[in-house]
Simulated scan of single mutants.
Amino acid sequence: MAATSTMTIRMGVDEKSLINDYAKTFGMTASEFVRTAVLEYIEDELDLRDWYAAKAEFDADPITYTADEVAKKYL
């Protein structure tokens, strides 16, 4: 198991209550919920960045190949 550490965040009482209630609804602790939400957000942002890079590459050279063409070339 990886080492763990603590991170403190400040929020309003209403925000804390909302997060606790939401997490509890799904059988999670607030810590589990916040950790999962933040990591998923980061993953989504990285995926979006990669998509924009791939889209720019395609826009610069919009040639596409079928799976059969790729297989013929590399297999």
Rank of each mutant, 00 (worst) to 15 (best):
T29Y: 00
E45K: 13
T8C: 06
K73T: 05
D50F: 07
Y52D: 14
D50Y: 10
T6F: 11
V38R: 00
E57T: 15
D59Y: 13
E43T: 11
V34K: 14
S17G: 15
F26Q: 09
V34N: 10
A23R: 04
K72H: 13
K55P: 02
G27K: 06
L18F: 15
K73Q: 15
N20A: 13
G12D: 15
T66H: 00
S17P: 04
A67L: 10
A60M: 05
K16Q: 06
I9M: 10
M28H: 10
E43R: 13
F33V: 01
P62S: 05
F58A: 09
G12N: 15
T66A: 01
D68G: 02
K72G: 10
F26E: 01
D44W: 02
V70G: 00
S17D: 13
K55W: 13
E69C: 07
R10N: 12
A60I: 02
A37C: 04
D59M: 11
Y65S: 00
Y41Q: 03
R10M: 10
D44G: 09
A71C: 09
A37Y: 04
V34Q: 05
T4G: 10
A23V: 01
A3N: 10
K72Y: 13
A3T: 08
K16I: 08
E40N: 11
L39P: 00
M7N: 02
E57I: 10
K24Y: 08
A56K: 15
S5M: 10
V70N: 02
M7W: 06
T8P: 01
M1Y: 11
M7E: 06
L75Q: 05
D68L: 12
S17E: 14
E69T: 04
W51G: 01
S17L: 13
G27V: 11
S17M: 11
T8N: 14
M11I: 09
D61W: 12
M7A: 12
F26I: 06
Y65W: 09
S31K: 09
